[in-house]
C-alpha cells in the first residue's frame, strides 16, 4: 500500500484488519491523531483524506492506498504555526487539547472548501468533533478568526492566498 501523508510518501505492508488510525499512530508514530471512542462518535481521530475530513477509526488502513492524507502534524512548518493554529492560540480555542487535533483537521477541510463559513456552516462541519472542555464558543471564535485572517490575506495578496 502506498499513500502520502503530510507530503511524504509511504509504502507499507499492513495487516488487513487494522484501521487507518492504527496505521497513523502505531506504524508511523504520528500520535497527534487521537482515539477517543473507537466508533466514530467523537471525532478525535479526524484526519483529512483527499481533502475530506474522515474518522480514521472507521477507515480500514488498506483504504488509505493511493490517497493523500493530512494529519495535525502536517499543519505547521518548522518555522511557524499555520494561520489556523495561530488563531486557535489567540482566541483560546484549546483547553485540555485532546480534541484539538481532530477539530483542527475538520476546520482545515472546511476552510479549504469554504473559506468564509457562517456559524451554521461551522456548526455542520464541527458537530462530529466533541469537546467536553470549552463549550465550543472559543473554538468557533478561532475558526471565524482564521477565516477572516485568510480572507484579509487574500485581499491583500498575502502569502497564504
Amino acid at each position: 500500500m502506498t499513500f502520502e501523508i503530510n507530503g511524504q510518501e509511504h509504502t507499507l505492508d499492513i495487516p488487513a484488519d487494522i484501521t487507518a488510525l492504527e496505521v497513523i499512530r502505531s506504524l508511523l508514530g504520528l500520535t497527534g491523531t487521537k482515539e477517543g471512542c473507537g466508533i466514530g462518535e467523537c471525532g478525535a481521530c479526524t484526519i483529512v483524506v483527499d481533502g475530506k475530513s474522515v474518522n480514521s477509526c472507521l477507515m480500514l488502513g488498506a483504504q488509505l492506498d493511493g490517497t493523500k492524507v493530512l494529519t495535525v502534524e502536517g499543519l505547521a512548518t518548522e518555522a511557524s504555526l499555520a494561520p489556523l493554529q495561530e488563531q486557535f492560540m489567540k482566541n483560546h480555542g484549546v483547553q485540555c487539547g485532546f480534541c484539538t487535533p481532530g477539530i483542527l483537521m475538520s476546520t482545515h477541510a472546511l476552510l479549504e472548501e469554504n473559506p468564509d463559513p457562517d456559524t451554521e456552516e461551522i456548526s455542520k462541519a464541527l458537530a462530529g468533533n466533541l469537546c467536553r472542555c470549552t463549550g465550543y464558543q472559543q473554538i468557533f471564535a478561532s475558526v471565524k478568526a482564521a477565516a477572516t485572517a485568510s480572507r484579509d490575506d487574500r485581499i491583500t495578496g498575502g502569502k497564504n492566498g
Partner: peptide
C-alpha cells in the same frame, strides 16, 4: 491579562504527549 496558554504550541501541533502517546 490574557497571556498565551503554557502548553498551547504542543497541543496545537500534536506534540503534547498524552498517556496513550507515550512510547
Amino acid at each position: 491579562k490574557n497571556i498565551q496558554r503554557r502548553d498551547i504550541v504542543e497541543k496545537l501541533t500534536g506534540q503534547a504527549n498524552f498517556c496513550a502517546d507515550i512510547a
